[in-house]
Design a protein around this nucleic acid. Sequence first.
DNA 1: TTGTAAGCGTTATCAA
DNA 2: TTGATAACGCTTACAA
Lengths: 367, 367
Amino acid sequence: MNHRKVNVTGQIGKSDVVRAGTFAFEKENSFVTIKDIADYVGVSTATVSLALSRNARITKETRDKVFEAVKMLNYRPSTAARNLALNRTKTISLILPEIKHLFLQPFFSLSLNGVYDACLENGYRLQIEVASYQFVKRKRYLRLFQERAIDGLLYVGSTLSDLYLNELNDTGFPVVLSGSYLKNSRIPYVIGDNRKGGEIATMHLFTLGRRKIAHIIGSFNIPSAVDRFEGYRKVLREKNLAYSSHFIGIGKFTAEGGFQAMKKILDYEPDAVFAGNDIMAEGAIQAIKDAGLKIPDDISVCGMDDLPLAKRITPALTTVKYDIYKIAYRAARKLIGKIEGKRNGRSSEFVSVKLIIRESCGAKRGK
Amino acid sequence: MNHRKVNVTGQIGKSDVVRAGTFAFEKENSFVTIKDIADYVGVSTATVSLALSRNARITKETRDKVFEAVKMLNYRPSTAARNLALNRTKTISLILPEIKHLFLQPFFSLSLNGVYDACLENGYRLQIEVASYQFVKRKRYLRLFQERAIDGLLYVGSTLSDLYLNELNDTGFPVVLSGSYLKNSRIPYVIGDNRKGGEIATMHLFTLGRRKIAHIIGSFNIPSAVDRFEGYRKVLREKNLAYSSHFIGIGKFTAEGGFQAMKKILDYEPDAVFAGNDIMAEGAIQAIKDAGLKIPDDISVCGMDDLPLAKRITPALTTVKYDIYKIAYRAARKLIGKIEGKRNGRSSEFVSVKLIIRESCGAKRGK
DNA sequence: TTGTAAGCGTTATCAA
DNA sequence: TTGATAACGCTTACAA
């Protein structure tokens, strides 16, 4: 054969003369293009393109020849050229809030896992962005869209103040929120049933005879946290338990925050605490132990999320399972569905929650 | 002005007739292109392009007019078109090993933070890939390169068996390893001084009078873990301490693994343990406490990495600071340097380590 | 200092 | 069933 030699890396030893210069020189490190395939097979680039997309009107014979050539020359289409021609990138951006040690927080790291898996399954690339001050103020989110660098945007853990997302959504650009939502907004989201979770947790403590139930909320600025809080309040109301601000602490979603919040609450002698997440529960447990109190004998502790740590700590934490991975996975799938123009059911979705009984509340297992 | 109306989103109400079809129709949702700017200003697209890149040979006057038009029409260049013309993407891929709950591991989450920051500072986009079985066996890493989807590749936490990276590196494609390295490979890397860390930790325990020093290694398949182990062995050798396989546990980089490894080691009554990282140290501490032993009175525990948890646990963990964030940040910078053809010093870099004395070894502070 | 036009590597239209 | 060729939106060599 008089065809060019091909090496393992997919580059071929071309000897094309490059642009009309004074000196002709060898084009080094150039990539195999659709033109090379066309020449090799002896057809036009149009035919190659059609054959590659398995268009029915190309004979099996030429299609086979094309695929053979692709293999021989180790051809791969240029992403940029394809993106330009098709006006899409098969890439989505995952936007994350700007938080110190962001990925040390299970919520975000599990979300990332879920989004990644959904992308992989659908042939999308995943690009990461952090919603820094710059990102918001300089309207970088709009630039991503205007520069056509991505096909859609997934926001994990947005706060109530992220209203700028509406502007983006209103342009028709695909946006989906994961694990959060915006008030008065038409941006679709996927989220767990936080309110229900708060109810289940609080109700569990009530059922065990607890009447002085405290709550540690992550932040009043995060919708999902507020919903958990509202579930808690609902049970208090229904069961005619007194609500006291002394029983409410703000734990900033961290163990340290949970620890500090619990310390203050302990002055008012609660007999139970529903921590807004497992991490704050871990901190609260530390504070209770430090105060010389026994769990669950003196105080019951219930968490939420069911992170790996819930099993590991002592006592093992009773908590409400909140499947962060699944939420993110579904959100990413929803986004991709939007991008590809599929009508996929309701615009927003809820993922259900479930009580996981362990040792920190004093309930008998299997009950 | 008789120019087109522009809305906030950067789209303009065009009324261009699109391609010669039977019916002319309005092009909806089309983006502002460089042609629009050229028409608006009354110059050629070449001039606009040059003006935008602040080429000196364009008069300030026209340049100003161009920038004015850009603002008016809310123009943003098409990423795809630019990538195609310039044959680069300003995107790098971060490759991560396939590990369950990957980002719950501080090593990876801190690395991600470092890489992201370096990208942001240099105007690069960050794309995430997981080195799954498919990724390796199907040679997806080669495809990323061949499809010209990225300009370079950063691998965090490669293992000794990731030899396929050599193949990629040998093509001349920019590859850098962060926090790891390959034996007999010319791939540049940035890493902390693990061997030194192992030495410092073990030496610290020796200085405190400990003579039966155990070690928990993450895995014998990870270069950095092996190096930490070798630092440990070096001190044993130098101080004529007996080396016993009973004093070596494999902790799989997890708290649970550290717990199990320590439990077995305890049978042989060590008076100190150097855990290969803080997470395993946390597990080891749990095992020691469960055995009814006091830290540091009965057993000294020294970790490595200095993660946030080191401060938090009881007793506060003496450890070797290993700046994962910085390593990843530097590695990303090195990669970008390679991409942009800069000769930036030595091909590999070491980040120094440092002993952080807290309470778990029994040393006096400030000593 | 600016304009013309080629080139980047695809896809897609329309004619053959 | 296939081929020419325009189009995607930018950069750049070269001419004016």
